[in-house]
Computed example of a mutant assay.
Amino acid sequence: MKGWTDCFKNTLNQMNLTSLHPSAFILLGIPGLESVQFWIAFPFCFMYFLVLLGNHIIIIVVKTDARLQDPMHLFLCMLAATDLILSTSVVPKMLFIFWFRSRGILFEACLFQMFFIHCFSAIESGMLVAMAFDRYVAICFPLRHVSILTHSTIGKIALIVAARGVLLIMPHPFLLNRLPFCENTIIPHSYCEYMAVVKLSCGDTIINRVYGLCVVLLIIGFDVMLISVSYYMILKSVLRLPTKEARFKSFSTCGSHLCAIMLFYVPALFTFLAHRFAHHVPLHVHILLANSYLLLPPMLNPLVYGVKTKQIRRRVGSMFCRHSL
């Protein structure tokens, strides 16, 4: 009887040990490039500075100029706010890792960071869909553009995009919280990426992997399909225009949005595919691309829209001229 009791106690102890979460994880940064991480942090810091500067300028310009309260600029303002939150959820901790070797992150903080990264990535994808719909309405129904996309409608679209991101990503931390983590608490990454944390678990992760794959395919696949349909309709409408100049002028209004789409989806798809299928890609290359994916679009979007959008370019120019005087 005593032997059975001891066996039962040992089993319970083992179950309790394996079911406990670690108090903290260790973020390595960029595995394989630890010796040069201190210097790599400088370009990342400069990129983050440009993210803060560019996106704050976009938000201030749109909010303070009544002439920029049209649907395209309101969606651009929301995209800038999303980019600010997305980059801020990653870069400060990353710089602490690179410069001060502050690699520890609490288990709960890791889940929060992971949620914000993936949630606002989903929201950014939804914003790009909303901006594609705006271009479709502006080109195919120019006389009804403002009446269709009223401020009320824009607010509802933004609410739907945000709610979709929250609802789809919310299960991630709960699914991770149910997993047992054993001795390995080292994350070979510079931030708490979902699959990187899942791989540390010593339990059955099939539900986490399947749900993560479904969410990515649902967000990227569905959004890319909607954007493609929007541009198919736009192209059909543009090709009906009588002159080459009219066709070029109409389609040129989509240039900034097409650049933003390429900046977001190309590295996102590469990062997703490399993380799950391309195991021959060196880990430091994958981590650098993942970091760039969270910094390049937020940094370049204000530049792209600032250069290509006449109203923003003039407004920013007048702001700096006024301050210089």
Rank of each mutant, 00 (worst) to 15 (best):
T253D: 11
M233Y: 09
C182E: 11
R164Y: 14
I187N: 07
A246H: 10
L258W: 09
S237Y: 08
P180G: 08
L176M: 06
R164E: 15
Y211A: 06
N184C: 14
Y231L: 05
L235E: 06
V224A: 09
P188L: 05
S237W: 05
A162V: 15
A163P: 08
V215C: 01
F222P: 00
V197D: 01
L217Y: 10
L226F: 07
I169K: 02
S230Y: 04
K199T: 04
S201V: 04
I219Y: 05
A246R: 14
R247N: 00
M170H: 00
Y231D: 08
T253C: 06
N184L: 14
V216E: 04
V197F: 00
Y231S: 08
C202R: 10
V216P: 00
K244S: 03
P173G: 12
I186T: 15
I160H: 12
F251Y: 14
N208W: 00
K236A: 02
M195F: 06
P180H: 06
L179W: 05
I169L: 05
E245G: 06
D223M: 11
N184H: 12
S250A: 15
I206Y: 04
H172P: 00
C192N: 01
I169M: 10
F248W: 12
V229H: 11
F181H: 10
I186C: 08
Y211F: 08
T185F: 11
V197M: 07
H189R: 11
S237H: 03
L200Q: 07
F248N: 11
P188Y: 04
A196D: 10
V224Y: 04
F174C: 06
E183N: 14
T205Y: 02
K199R: 12
V161L: 09
L239W: 15
E183H: 14
T253S: 14
K244D: 00
N184R: 12
C254L: 04
